[in-house]
């Protein structure tokens, strides 16, 4: 089984990389991009029967820094 973890900077935490991407899109002529937030996706190959709670523990302990980041888990 697999799980996919989306890690994003929390709302309210300035994302300078996203802001640089927004500028670059503007200079390529893509008008109307109001904001860009950049995050990461972490795919996990897991032993069958691994629970979402275990993945949540992985996020809390390592995969996300919950001071600045939020995460979402997709079990598949």
């Amino acid at each position: 089984m697999k799980a996919r973890v989306h890690v994003m900077l929390k709302n309210g935490v300035l994302d300078p990389q996203g802001e640089a991407v927004r500028h670059a899109l503007g200079s390529l002529g893509f008008d109307g991009v109001g904001g860009v937030r950049q995050g990461k996706i972490i795919e996990l190959d897991l032993a069958d029967g691994t629970t979402e709670d275990t993945v949540k523990e992985m996020c809390e302990k390592l995969l996300a820094n919950t001071v600045i980041e939020s995460y979402q888990i997709e079990m598949a």
Binding site: V13, L14, P16, Q17, A20, N65, V67, I68
Partner: peptide, 15 residues
């Protein structure tokens, strides 16, 4: 990251 100090260090604002 160990939690011994509060807060976090992010990418420099000027990148």
């Amino acid at each position: 990251e160990t939690g011994l100090l509060p807060g976090a260090l992010m990418r420099n604002a000027g990148l």
